[in-house]
Write a protein that binds this DNA or RNA. Sequence first.
DNA 1: CCACGGTGGTAGA
DNA 2: TCTACCACCGTGG
Length: 183
Amino acid sequence: MTSNPKTISKSLTAVSIETPAGHFIAHFSEAGLARLEFPRRTATLPQPSLNEWSSKQLKWLAITKRAICDTLRGQPASEFPPFDLSSGTDFQQCVWKALRGIAMGAIKSYGEIAQEIGSPKAVRAVGGACGANPIPLLVPCHRVLAANLHLGGFSGGLDWKLRLLAAEGVDVRLPGSRRAWGE
DNA sequence: CCACGGTGGTAGA
DNA sequence: TCTACCACCGTGG
């Protein structure tokens, strides 16, 4: 019963995706989109030669770009690429699957997710799994808030979490008190 | 507002 | 193994 995801090493192909909000970096495996990074200040990646890509991956790339742009505009994506979430533990994959069930504009709490996956007390662990989500934005961990509509955290920086929620029309109890403005 | 204890899962030693 | 983290939660000042 012990799956050991860390022993699975996969070769990933990274590509930068240009959007109105900056350059995201997507990593594809043979199975699908495996990782997505928010735009950074620091230098962007050299673009790999696209002719080494399978037509399969080129298609995923187009779908991914469309899905990112739609989500940023607060519109439901019409299509997602396949996700390769095999890097996660069983528990994490369980959580990530639950995250995918949260519709755009909807929110859930860490506690609700915990309940949903059948481990009602594993609340902190759910937070940990959200933080380990390799595909933020498209696996919508930004739609998970703490209790009482408190913001909680976000691996990509809380400013992103706020921005995404705002785009989806969700208003959050703002952290005038809640500390930590993650960077 | 703050402090604290109870939590379950992970990573590192 | 044991231990020390945590994107939490509820309760009590």
